[in-house]
């Protein structure tokens, strides 16, 4: 337990000090992106680790929040309706949650690969909708110049405030997920993951639980989506196209879809590879490299990088010291 606490302190310190040891590129493009994109990945990891459901529509839900925020804060070419930013953000998150719930409704009767396929279909449908709809999504162009609000003179779009905003929201989402899985609702979700039939016989409404899990994941993805929007200062169909949709799954698998920390680890590694692979390898082979890294991880550590670390840790702890006999307070349930 003390080690866990120590790790928490170290992560908190790194998050705090990070801006003072890196340049603005590392601050925003690597740091900010890891935290915003990681939060979208977190919504997938939450679904997978605690409810056993895979979704390819998390970037889509994030896109809903992004588009909504853009629509309500940065109207362009007659598209959009300017609202006060708190109202806009509440609406955006509400719509993302609603989108999550709707996707849950569509996917609720499916399992495994079928869930993946149906959520992919939803994601692609949304992509084409944004591409071809002008009244709401402004078609191919989407929304540009979407700036975060300035609150009491503090410009949240400036690198340092934006980084800390991202860090705070990411930490809140992470802590929120860790909290929820230890509530009666969260336990029920894990029951759903392990034995849905059993859960039903205990009096739970299994389809409702599934839909609600998607809704909650939608809320989290929505927060990530807004951060992503502000990072790019814009959103267009390219932001919800097949590539970014797949990227979420890739980052999740890289980091390990069994533990929420894997979301951010995966997002970080993915961002690094995405930005720097081009230095080490000809650009035509760029996607090949990402594919190979992905393959290697899936092959050698099916539970991703966090799984790798955890196993190495367990081995070290097992041989280096006598294991603590007192059973763990079962706080790290989550497979």
């Amino acid at each position: 337990m003390t080690l866990r606490r120590l790790l928490t302190v170290v992560v908190a310190l790194v998050l705090l000090v990070y801006p003072f040891v890196v340049n603005s590129f590392w601050l925003v493009q690597i740091g900010g992106r890891t935290l915003g994109f990681g939060t979208i990945v977190l919504s997938l990891v939450f679904l997978t680790a605690y409810t056993g459901m895979l979704s390819l529509a998390q970037m889509t839900v994030a896109g809903v929040a992004g588009y909504a925020t853009a629509y309500f804060t940065a109207p362009t070419g007659g598209v959009g309706l300017e609202l006060a930013w708190p109202v806009a953000l509440i609406l955006a998150l509400g719509l993302a949650t609603l989108a999550g719930l709707l996707i849950g409704l569509v996917a609720v009767r499916t399992r495994g690969i079928y869930t993946l396929m149906i959520t992919l279909a939803v994601a692609m449908a949304f992509y084409y909708l944004t591409l071809q709809n002008y009244a709401v999504f402004n078609g191919f162009t989407g929304f540009n110049n979407v700036e975060p609000p300035v609150i009491a003179g503090l410009d949240l779009g400036a690198p340092l405030p934006f980084y800390y905003l991202s860090a705070v929201l990411a930490v809140l989402c992470y802590a929120g997920v860790r909290h929820v899985v230890r509530t009666p609702f969260g336990l029920a979700l894990q029951g759903l993951r392990d034995e849905p039939q059993r859960l039903q016989a205990l009096g739970y409404n299994v389809p409702l639980l599934r839909v609600l899990a998607f809704g909650l994941a939608g809320f989290v993805a929505g927060i990530g989506g807004i951060l992503n929007l502000w990072l790019n200062a814009s959103i267009s169909p390219g932001s919800v196209a097949l590539n970014p949709v797949i990227d979420v799954l890739m980052a999740g698998v890289l980091g390990g879809i069994g533990h929420p920390a894997g979301a951010y680890v995966g997002a970080f590694v993915f961002t690094i590879v995405d930005n720097f692979a081009i230095d080490f390898i000809a650009r035509e082979r760029f996607n090949t490299l990402i594919g190979l890294v992905f393959l290697a991880i899936v092959l050698f550590s099916p539970d991703g990088l966090t799984g790798l670390v955890r196993r190495a840790w367990a081995r070290w702890a097992g041989t280096g010291r006598r294991r603590d006999d007192a059973p763990d307070d079962s706080t790290n349930i989550g497979k």
Binding site: N23, F25, W26, Q29, N232, S236, G238, S239, A241, N275
Partner: peptide, 15 residues
């Protein structure tokens, strides 16, 4: 994709 272009531009300028 404008997102990707922005990411690359940030890299060239800021990194």
């Amino acid at each position: 994709n404008p997102d990707v272009a922005l990411e690359s531009a940030r890299r060239l300028v800021e990194q």
